[in-house]
Write a protein that binds this DNA or RNA. Sequence first.
RNA 1: GGCCCGGUAGUUCAGUUGGUUAGAAUGCCAGCCUGUCACGCUGGAGGUCGUGGGUUCGAGCCCCAUCCGGGUCGCCA
Length: 595
Amino acid sequence: MENIKGLTRTGYCAEYDIKDIGKKVVLMGWVNRSRNLGSIIFCDMRDRTGLIQVVFREEKNKSLFNKATNLKSEYVIAVTGIVNEREDKNPNIKTGDIEIEAEELRILSESAVPAIDIAENTATNELMRLKYRYLDLRKPKQQYYLIMRNKVAKCTRDFFSENGFIEVETPVLTRSTPEGARDYLVPSRVNQGKFYALPQSPQLLKQLLMISGLDRYYQIVKCFRDEDLRANRQPEFTQIDLEMSFVDVDDVIAVNEKFIKKLFKETLNVDVNIPFARMTYEEAMNRFGSDKPDLRYGMELTDISELVKDSEFKVFSDACKNNGSVRGINAKGCADFSRKDIDKLTDFVKDYRAKGLAWLKVGVDNEITGSIVKFFDKEQLTSIVDAFNGEENDLILIIADRNETVFDSLGALRTEIAKRMNLADHERWEFLWVTEFPLLEFDEETNRYYAKHHPFTSPMDEDIPLLHTHPEKVRAKAYDIVLNGEEIGGGSIRIHDSVFQEEMLEVLGFTKDKAQESFGFLLNALKYGAPPHGGMAYGLDRLVMSITKTDNIRDVIAFPKIQSGACPLTDAPNIVEKKQLDELGICLKERKDEV
RNA sequence: GGCCCGGUAGUUCAGUUGGUUAGAAUGCCAGCCUGUCACGCUGGAGGUCGUGGGUUCGAGCCCCAUCCGGGUCGCCA
């Protein structure tokens, strides 16, 4: 192996073009591919900017040529040479008009045969890719994700700095607070038997910063939640977190629309129109069965409860009687779905606790067929189909159940069918604010109310009188920002009155003592002149996913974890030395498989 | 914890009703080749078919259990 003594890189591989012909250059990078034709070798060299072809000719320099015959995939090399125009150009790569006529070659580092394909574009299984993540990240596509993520972070810092926000770091070793996700715990050596918790978000600390008078805070910050992983959920993820003093809902929304506008201009050169559409939670649920509707396509829900509440079809009439409803969607042009297809959709909605899926097809001459025709006369069927604006070749899918189940399953079904029929225009960016979320949710298992957002969210002023009489009807000053059917962020105006905050905790079932024990530091702080304040947090990873159009969160994280929460590269989590446990005063229970 | 999909050569995959010595592409090794660009041509090496058990004359294929990966429901204030 050789060193780079005396060599200074003149530029990146893909930075050169036809204008540089005749220049002497020094390049460093990886061997993407080498093609040996016998007396001439073409070597594609790669760095993070792309590829450039290097030529070695036996007739020109025998010893240099012989050295080049040793080049293999992923060797690291330094090449000195002259930029030449190619005899045969390659329009498929950026530097296809030129090549480097090699004058010197140094092999800086050899490579074992790569465990995964880098130059090939094969879809290697993810476990392998993550185990060799440093190789996987050599792929241009993977580098694109990280480069885009950096652009988002840079633009975020630029925007919030320019708008008077101050970036403040909050602790990673903090305390566990009740409510919310499961905490990651860190044992304290100095205080044995006590634990830090990693933050699920810096929520309370940023409120304290408002009380401190920082006025506007932001932070790009890691958050941790010990819950099961999903395609868009990692146990550690990054938030763009912000908080503002002396604001109400519209103020927070206005600043964030400006931010998003700048972000999309600078990352994708896309002009988004502001202000964004707004919709209340109630409207979103009624029209789309979801609090994060994708507005790139229609297929809205239709409520036919009134039409069928007295029908002889028990499934429909019972649902209406039991405070539920009968609703459906019209899958335009899907009448060619087979029974098997529809059975699969039925299984699909069962995942969302729906007990079944009723369907009607509109055929030639408006002939109506389907699973429920025998329960209705012709006139009734026509009125149902009309309610859906059903036309020839439409498939109408109906669910009768508790409202919650109806919305969950139809909302998911709408998304599923849109995916199957490719209804979404992938070039469109549909932003939406969903507002007026319910403040509380009742949990039947524990028989109490939980904060839907978090316990520090302010109710809407006009709903405060309902807090003790009809808690479920109280709406919150909470808002989510939705992009193409994905929730990319959310926030709320917070309670800034300590007495009212205590009252809220009481509604949530906290005794005075328990509230003081858990949130005493906040309740105390609120007594010392807390300004009205509110804020937002974006899921940075999800935002980058949207911008880069990937549906896998692992793509936008350099070293992500697999579904079990493990890191195949470092083998974390792992066992530790007994000595470490002793110092922490921790002794492990025997594992079942060791008993 | 439930449900669905997957696990066969270094990698990506095929493998018929259960039937001879488990195939292909790519990668790798050797040789040839002066304009390739997924270079080409010739030859070669490379497999506990995730693991364990069962059914059978015979299992990559069927059955049971189990492990691993992905998706999803629950969960994620």
